[in-house]
């Protein structure tokens, strides 16, 4: 999974039970994340890679890491489609 980071326009409130995301682009949109996704988002926001975050979620719940990684890949696609997550790209100079 590519490295991902939350969009700068997204403000998140994360609890152990879930999370709320407010995307202030345009007219503003609210999203709700269930518990495992919210925990994954929290790790991502702290700088973990997508897979590291998924592994942390798996450890928290005592779940199969491969299953959690697959689930988080699906979630990442949804979040990227809504422009709430971006692929992290290291800056390069082009001539």
């Amino acid at each position: 999974m590519p490295d991902l980071h939350p969009a700068s326009t997204v403000h998140a409130t994360i609890t152990e039970r879930g999370g709320m995301l407010l995307d202030v682009r345009g007219r503003g949109r609210w999203y709700a994340l269930t518990g495992s996704g919210a925990l994954w988002w929290r790790h991502l926001a702290k700088g973990a890679t997508a897979d590291e975050a998924a592994d942390a979620v798996a450890a928290h719940f005592g779940s199969d890491p491969e299953r959690v990684r697959a689930d988080m890949r699906n979630l990442a696609r949804e979040l990227q489609d809504r422009r709430l997550l971006h692929v992290y790209s290291r800056g390069r100079w082009h001539r």
Binding site: R29, W30, S36, G37, F61
Partner: peptide, 18 residues
Amino acid sequence: STPETYSAPQLFELDVVK
């Protein structure tokens, strides 16, 4: 406030816009 069991994450877009 019992260990939680894992469930796949879900994302909901709320039907509110101030």
